[in-house]
Design a protein around this nucleic acid. Structure first.
Length: 426
RNA sequence: GGAGAGGUGGCCGAGCGGCUGAAGGCAACUGCCUGCUAAGCAGUUGGGCGGGUUACCGUCCCCCGGGUUCGAAUCCCGGCCUCUCCGCCA
């Protein structure tokens, strides 16, 4: 969540952030609730103060042996205690109203983020060049079928539409890619994490999937647990409620998980093959940064995700998202998109975000500056490094041959026992 | 799933109805001392919220949520988590 002081001091800034992110504007409601909450607190503090004084007088009177006085004071204190309870009830309600509103305010986009919808996104650069074919390139569905790597019908058979099933060298390549990516990140100082694939409500709220995206997640009501839509949730929440040591910052984590998204309401878009599925694998990068360093960390995080694609020699581009296209919790987002020649389009495989203190405020992740002074919130960042299904799509489509085979990228071959090519199984 | 033990500050750990935001220790910081290091001596050091221009004042916080009481870290109820034993199981 954002700092209430920003709303108090600069409501217009917050209002325009809501407008630019297409979020409902509750700023005025918050200001009203805030004033109400503060008034009730002042009143309650005063009442409690008097109650404490009285009640210590009761104790003193009993200790002094003056029973009569003690009983008299006690009766007074009882009356005061009742009014404190009544007021606390009102205070709790006001507090609840206030925080329920505050949690709906999106993060404020950074100054250098373009304002507008997706059409205002800025393509920053392209890396590599699109593969050239002297034949009509096939798409990943054909290749997956021909080479026995992908079967959407079998996925649907066991789980339903939108669940993929990889087989043979498709499954092997997926596994090899995960290992390769984790190695690349480990060499750059990221600590590998294998977290739970489920998370509780508090964790989901900490990283801001709740309240906005609650309906997009698979939920188990018995335990109030959610299947994670991204490893960002369990990994960022590793340090929830903690006071970190400044000398340990920045902290880098890399984790592989499966990810689960209901994708409710997205039927009709990207429904074919691996482009948008309910369950997919991903390697995720998460950073906890000193607030003074998070913009540098954001750039190096982007570079880290790019390392994977460069190692695989894939054609990609980096896009700076406009306000209307970025997520609720982020202040600035780069997307990395891979070129998929069979689809003839760019596919998002990574989203690289700086959340500043938006998540750490919710999850209460702080540090105490060594120079003394106020406890501060750390900054959190994350990036996919990278998402598997679309990476497979881009590899298959980019590395296909006229013979209908798929070459294995050189960097990946050690992870596949030296295999160079995927051919139809006989 | 059954039985027991426990969850206290940055960390360890005492307290088990009022004088406790919390002993003691560790750690950190500041002085003194010391040729450096170490040790020693003295002192300082939690967080949230609210109020005041500052020094400051008030309130809340001893896993979480309720309750009893004039008053709760301390008593009662519910939940979560950790540990030990038994059962079951990839």
């Amino acid at each position: 969540m954002i700092d209430i002081n920003i709303i108090r001091e600069n409501p217009e800034l917050v209002k325009s952030a809501c407008a630019n992110k297409n979020e409902p504007d509750v700023v005025d409601e918050i200001l009203t609730a805030d004033a109400e909450r503060r008034a009730l607190q002042a009143e309650g503090d005063e009442l409690r103060h008097r109650q404490k004084e009285l009640s210590s007088q009761v104790g003193a009177a009993f200790a002094g042996g003056d029973r009569e006085l003690a009983e008299k004071l006690k009766a007074e204190a009882k009356a005061l205690s009742d009014s404190v309870k009544a007021l606390e009830e009102k205070q709790r309600e006001a507090e609840t109203r206030w925080s329920a509103l505050l949690i709906k305010v999106p993060n404020i986009p950074a100054d250098d983020v373009p304002v507008g919808d997706a059409s205002a996104n800025v393509i920053l650069r392209e890396w590599g060049s699109p593969p050239k074919f002297d034949f009509e390139p096939r798409d990943h569905i054909d290749l997956g079928d021909m080479l026995g790597m992908l079967d959407m019908e079998l996925g649907a058979k066991v789980a339903g539409s939108g669940f993929s099933l990889l087989a043979g060298d498709g499954a092997r390549m997926s596994r090899a890619l995960i290992a390769m990516m984790l190695d690349i990140h480990r060499e750059s100082g990221f600590l590998e994490i294998a977290p739970p694939f489920l998370a509780n409500r508090q964790a989901m709220t900490g990283t801001a999937q709740i309240p906005k995206l609650e309906g997009d997640m698979y939920h188990f009501p018995e335990e109030d647990l959610f299947l994670i839509p991204t490893a960002e949730v369990p990994i960022t929440n590793l340090h929830a409620g903690e006071m970190l040591r400044e000398e340990n910052l920045p902290i880098y984590y890399a984790g592989y998980t499966a990810n689960f998204r209901r994708e409710a309401g997205s039927y009709g878009a990207d429904t074919r093959g691996l482009l948008r599925v309910h369950q997919f694998d991903k390697v995720e990068l998460v950073k906890f940064s000193h607030p003074d360093k998070s913009w540098e960390e954001h750039e190096s995080l982007l570079a880290q995700a790019e390392k994977v694609l460069q190692a695989l020699e894939l054609h990609y581009r980096v896009v700076l998202l406009a306000t209307g296209d970025m997520s609720f919790a982020s202040a600035k987002v780069y997307d990395i998109e891979l070129w998929a020649p069979g689809e003839g389009r760019w596919l998002e495989v990574s989203s690289c975000s700086n959340f500043l203190d938006f998540q750490s405020r919710r999850a209460n992740i702080r540090f105490r500056p060594e120079s003394g002074g106020q406890v501060q919130f750390v900054h959190t960042l994350n990036a996919s490094g990278v998402a598997l299904p679309r990476l497979l799509v881009a590899i298959w489509e980019s590395y296909q041959t006229a013979r209908g085979t798929v070459q294995i990228p050189r960097a990946l071959r050690p992870y596949m026992h030296g295999q160079e090519e995927i051919s139809p199984r006989l």
